[in-house]
């Protein structure tokens, strides 16, 4: 599969995304500079983490003026698979591809740690290979990771099942009153209306090999790759699912 990783000035996580998809998952990953106007007909688009345009004004905001944005919006509108990781999630919110916004963590600190997340939506093209009973241990690395949306948007997200991931503790419990970084309803990742675009605060591409401390991101990135060859209607995925993610990794870097 062809995987386009969009690079803005400051997209420091682009190389990690290319590495995960090309070296670990064996796909054809390439970068697309933000001054381009086309994505090159990829099967997957990644908006990687980092600090696009130095996070000036607001994280992700200045990407609004980049030529590639039209192609990103069209790709999302065409119901094709796109993932925004960390700063990429912030960018997709700023571009209004995803609803809501990401604000400063409630602790006012840069959170660079692994946390547990639970899978809320296990039917989308990005999450259907995940076991909703298992927790994922994934790294996050951000200053503005506190998801916020107005009440109406939040209600829609909840009712339509478009919350992909939530912060949780070791037992899988989500603390709605006092979520880890202040994210409303403990939200750590969401899907758009047609569930083809996933935005997540954590970095699945930094959790794909044992030496990274967790391999729980593998199944997320692999999901679209498998999706072409696996009939998902019966949810009989185990035979084809060859990822080897462990369920309880250490949560320390």
């Amino acid at each position: 599969m062809k995987v386009a990783v969009v690079v803005f000035p400051g997209s420091g996580g682009a190389a990690d995304a290319v590495y995960a998809y090309s070296e670990v998952l064996g796909q054809e990953a390439y970068t697309v500079w933000h001054q381009e106007e086309t994505l090159g007909d990829p099967d997957i688009v990644v908006i990687p983490g980092g600090s696009a345009f130095g996070d000036y004004l607001r994280p992700g905001a200045l990407t609004r003026g980049s030529p590639i944005v039209g192609a990103i919006r069209k790709y999302a509108r065409d119901d094709r698979p796109m993932i925004g990781i960390g700063n990429g999630f912030q960018i997709l919110c700023e571009l209004e591809v995803l609803p809501g916004v990401l604000l400063q963590n409630i602790s006012s600190s840069f959170l660079n740690t692994n946390t547990f997340v639970c899978v809320d939506n296990d039917r989308s093209m990005w999450t259907r290979h995940l076991d909703p009973e298992e927790l994922l241990s994934l790294p996050m690395s951000c200053y503005c990771g506190r998801y916020y949306a107005d009440k109406r948007t939040l209600k829609d997200l909840e009712e339509q099942g478009h919350i992909a991931f939530r912060f949780c503790d070791l037992d899988g419990d989500v603390d709605l009153d006092n979520p880890f970084n202040g994210s409303v309803n403990g939200i750590a990742g969401i899907l758009n209306r047609h569930e083809n675009v996933l935005g997540m605060i954590h970095h699945p591409e930094r959790a794909v090999e044992d030496l990274m401390g967790s391999v729980d991101g593998y199944a997320i990135l692999q999901s679209i790759v498998l999706g072409d060859t696996v009939d998902l209607s019966g949810r009989d995925l185990d035979d084809d699912d060859d990822d080897d993610d462990d369920d309880d990794d250490d949560d320390d870097d």
Partner: peptide, 9 residues
Amino acid sequence: HKLLANTLV
């Protein structure tokens, strides 16, 4: 509206 402020928040 287009860039300087995110009027959601």
